[in-house]
Design a protein around this nucleic acid. Structure first.
Lengths: 160, 160
DNA sequence: TATTGTTATACTCTATAACTATA
DNA sequence: TATAGTTATAGAGTATAACAATA
């Protein structure tokens, strides 16, 4: 079954996939622990706040869709963030069914603080690597981002 | 603030950290969706089975510690896997307080099946990248694995 | 009638505390 | 008394279904 023309690259893909299966959860754990520890917040909450920082005024339905949660789930999540005064929830003047969500200044500050803490923690781990490796890793991560970003989708560090 | 000797590399670390924050959750979602979709299983369940495939006979306490869950949580998780006939739970002959955990043949087959499906799904995403990039990405992932693997810790694709 | 959001309910995953059996 | 594991209970986080308000 490896005779087909398209299969010549499969071992390389397999190797890459196996490495991703191994490395990605390791790094995800660091990120999750930092979000929890610094802000007592789940990853989806953090992603939602990141999205709102880029798209203030987003309605609940749009946010739920972008983050990949149902509206009831997002509604409850926003309840909690509003209670913590990290997010504002305001009826739209043009369509009173809609609510426009945005970060409070405290929410934005917390978001930036968490991002900074994650960056510091990840950098600590990266310090063992030589300069030349970091250059290559940066390029590789940029290519992985292209490969895994669907049109309309966003990442944790940027939009959601 | 960029004049300090030690700071010359900081932007590179920052850039790398920001990319990780963005890329890692994207890939994690693909992996999680595949585990859920193929095996109706959570990521920790999948990791536990991966660990048992490498360390059959592990007691509950050891598994809980390696996966990073409490014993009650692991006990309930194993309940479910035993009910599904993916894991066996057998009292130790030398110390009857302990139970020795292992995969059933069905459990091992499911584990391998899920790994294959994840690999296929990740490979699909990687197909857009040129051969040369894959080589560099493989090298980069290997270095990231080194940087993020603590002694005794394991990855999803290998041990846990 | 369709859309936006909330409430009701339930299930999974997780934890801490209390308990049982064994050492 | 100490250890391995389970049971009891509780709190997030998620979903589907039913509901309310608005268009």
């Amino acid at each position: 079954m490896k005779q087909l023309e398209n299969d010549t690259n499969l071992p390389r893909y397999d190797r890459c996939a196996a490495l991703l299966m191994e490395v990605v959860p390791l790094i995800m754990r660091v990120i999750r622990a930092e979000i929890r520890g610094v802000a007592e917040m789940s990853v989806p909450q953090f992603r939602a706040m990141g999205f709102l920082s880029r798209h203030p005024g987003t309605p609940l339905s749009g946010l739920a869709e972008h983050i990949g949660l149902t509206m009831p789930t997002m509604s409850k999540m926003i309840d909690g963030l509003v209670d913590r005064q990290l997010v504002t929830r305001q009826s739209s003047s043009s369509d009173r069914r809609r609510i426009e969500l945005a970060l409070t200044p405290e929410g934005l500050a917390l978001l930036e603080s968490v991002r900074g803490h994650i960056s510091v923690r990840l950098s600590e781990k990266l310090r063992s690597l030589p300069e030349q490796s970091l250059i290559a890793i940066n390029r590789s991560l940029g290519e992985l981002r292209s490969a895994f970003t669907l049109p309309g989708e966003v990442g944790i560090g940027t939009e959601g």
